[in-house]
Amino acid sequence: MLNAYRLGASLYVPATHHDVLNIANGTRWPELRSVIFCTEDAVLETALEAAIKNLRHALAHMTTNCAMLRFVRVRNPDILTQLLALPGIEKIDGFVFPKFDLSNVDAYMNLLHDSPYLCMPTLETRDVFETSKLNSLRDHLLGSGYQQRILALRIGGNDLLSLLGIRRPTDRTIYCTPLGHTIAQIVTVFKPFGFQITAPVFEHLNCPEILEAELSEDLAHGLCGKTAIHPDQIPIIEKGFRVTSTDLEAAQRILLDQRAVFQFNGSMCELATHRVWAQRIIERSR
Score class of each variant (00 low, 15 high):
residue 9 A to H: 03
residue 9 A to Y: 07
residue 12 Y to G: 00
residue 12 Y to V: 05
residue 21 L to S: 04
residue 24 A to K: 01
residue 26 G to I: 00
residue 27 T to M: 01
residue 27 T to K: 08
residue 28 R to H: 08
residue 29 W to I: 11
residue 33 R to F: 01
residue 33 R to Q: 10
residue 34 S to M: 01
residue 37 F to V: 01
residue 42 A to Y: 06
residue 43 V to E: 03
residue 50 A to D: 12
residue 51 A to V: 10
residue 54 N to P: 05
residue 56 R to Y: 09
residue 56 R to N: 11
residue 58 A to M: 07
residue 60 A to P: 01
residue 67 A to M: 06
residue 68 M to S: 09
residue 72 V to G: 10
residue 84 L to A: 10
residue 85 A to S: 12
residue 85 A to T: 08
residue 85 A to G: 02
residue 86 L to G: 10
residue 96 V to R: 03
residue 98 P to N: 03
residue 99 K to V: 00
residue 102 L to T: 01
residue 102 L to W: 00
residue 105 V to S: 03
residue 107 A to Q: 06
residue 112 L to H: 01
residue 115 S to K: 13
residue 118 L to Y: 15
residue 118 L to S: 10
residue 124 E to G: 09
residue 127 D to V: 07
residue 129 F to E: 01
residue 130 E to L: 14
residue 132 S to M: 08
residue 132 S to A: 12
residue 135 N to H: 12
residue 137 L to H: 08
residue 140 H to R: 10
residue 142 L to Q: 08
residue 143 G to D: 11
residue 148 Q to I: 05
residue 151 L to Q: 06
residue 152 A to K: 11
residue 153 L to R: 14
residue 154 R to M: 07
residue 158 N to I: 09
residue 160 L to Q: 06
residue 164 L to R: 15
residue 164 L to C: 09
residue 165 G to V: 08
residue 166 I to E: 10
residue 170 T to R: 15
residue 171 D to K: 11
residue 173 T to C: 05
residue 176 C to T: 03
residue 176 C to E: 10
residue 179 L to A: 09
residue 180 G to T: 04
residue 180 G to P: 13
residue 182 T to H: 05
residue 184 A to D: 04
residue 188 T to W: 09
residue 191 K to G: 00
residue 192 P to T: 03
residue 192 P to W: 02
residue 197 I to R: 02
residue 200 P to S: 06
residue 200 P to A: 06
residue 202 F to H: 15
residue 204 H to D: 00
residue 204 H to T: 00
residue 206 N to Y: 04
residue 207 C to H: 12
residue 207 C to N: 04
residue 211 L to D: 03
residue 213 A to H: 09
residue 213 A to I: 00
residue 215 L to D: 03
residue 217 E to D: 15
residue 223 L to K: 14
residue 224 C to P: 12
residue 228 A to I: 14
residue 229 I to R: 04
residue 230 H to M: 13
residue 234 I to Q: 11
residue 234 I to T: 13
residue 235 P to N: 14
residue 242 R to H: 12
residue 244 T to E: 09
residue 246 T to I: 15
residue 249 E to W: 07
residue 251 A to Y: 14
residue 252 Q to A: 14
residue 253 R to M: 10
residue 253 R to A: 04
residue 254 I to W: 07
residue 255 L to C: 07
residue 255 L to R: 12
residue 266 G to V: 07
residue 274 H to R: 01
residue 275 R to Q: 14
residue 277 W to D: 00
residue 278 A to M: 04
residue 283 E to A: 15
